[in-house]
């Protein structure tokens, strides 16, 4: 599909070599160097120390809390993201463009300000917050507030990775399915979902990575209580204060590795599956899902 690349390898001129070297040097200095420096600090005292830092009860609590928040945020924002994308692409209603614009807002809002927003609206001094708290459901400085913060900062990710796919495939196949008598759920999970699934997965992976690493909003919203509202990133922040910040380095490496593996792993799987699907579709004159429906 792609035009063959200009085979510059043999005929590479000096300016080109220089450009490559310059880019690699910049990359090394800015991205690779700091990552390696951090890893070196984390592993300098030996594997035993790393293990000890990881099994610190506070570290485990923090990781568990981060996992909880990430799971809830990912599930709810993925469901919302799919639904919102369908609504935005397939429906026309008053205010659609406003909603569309608002969705990008979390990209533009500083996480600290996101935290501030939640405190102002749901904080115990606000009308809503005090009402909810009197029902025994406090938000800010408790888990619900932290989940809300995570939802806020990751809100656009799934929508923005699903909507373009929906737009691109159009609604023809869905229409055919419903004329054939399929109800909306069958149409959704037999037609729509399979076509958008990689968009969903990519968006969800971004949500996971982003909520694992969220810091600014949580700092404002959580109260940072060790063993209760201290997430992994807040633990890092807290450990920097201690005289031996080794725990911070180790936790940082854990967080960075997990989210990086999720992103890279997803991209790899996605590429290989896409390649296979292209091959399959080419054999099948591009009507895959509809034919399956008829077979059924």
């Amino acid at each position: 599909m792609k035009p063959p690349k200009p085979q510059l390898q043999n005929t590479m001129t000096w300016p080109q070599r220089f450009l490559i070297i310059a880019v690699l040097a910049w990359f090394g200095l800015l991205i690779l160097g700091p990552a390696v420096a951090l890893a070196r600090r984390a592993f300098a005292p030996g594997v035993g120390a790393v293990f000890k830092a990881l099994t610190d009860p506070d570290a485990i609590e923090a990781l568990l809390l981060t996992a909880k928040i990430t799971v809830v945020v990912t599930i709810s924002n993925t469901i919302f993201g799919i639904a919102m994308a369908i609504v935005l692409v397939r429906q026309r209603f008053w205010g659609r463009r406003i909603v569309d614009g608002l969705l990008d807002l979390p990209f533009a809002v500083s996480p600290v300000i996101a935290g501030l927003m939640l405190i102002i609206l749901y904080g115990p001094k606000s009308t809503i917050g005090s009402r909810l708290e009197s029902f025994g459901f406090p938000i800010v400085y408790h888990l619900p507030g932290m989940i809300l913060a995570g939802m806020f900062v990751t809100l656009p990710l799934v929508v923005r990775s699903v909507a373009p796919i929906l737009e691109e495939i159009g609604s023809d196949q869905e229409d055919v399915a419903s004329t054939l008598g399929a109800d909306w759920w069958t149409t959704f999970h037999r037609i729509t979902l399979p076509t958008i699934r990689w968009g969903v997965a990519y968006g969800a992976a971004l949500v996971v990575a982003r909520s694992l690493g969220e810091f600014g909003a949580l700092l404002v919203v959580s109260g940072n209580i060790i063993g209760r509202t201290q997430t992994a990133t807040l633990y890092v922040h807290d450990q920097i204060e201690s005289f031996e910040p080794h725990g911070a380095y180790v936790m940082s490496i854990v967080l960075a590795t997990v989210s990086f593996c999720i992103l890279v792993g997803l991209e790899t799987i996605q590429n290989s599956v896409r390649r296979r699907e292209y091959a399959a579709e080419a054999k099948e004159d591009g009507q895959g899902p509809i034919r399956q429906m008829r077979r059924h």
């Binding site: 405190i119 904080g123 115990p124 001094k125 800010v140 400085y141 109260g223 940072n224 060790i226 807290d238």
Partner: peptide, 14 residues
Amino acid sequence: SYLASGALSRAIGG
């Protein structure tokens, strides 16, 4: 929970 003093006061007030 160990916080900066002002943050602690705000958190308790909150």
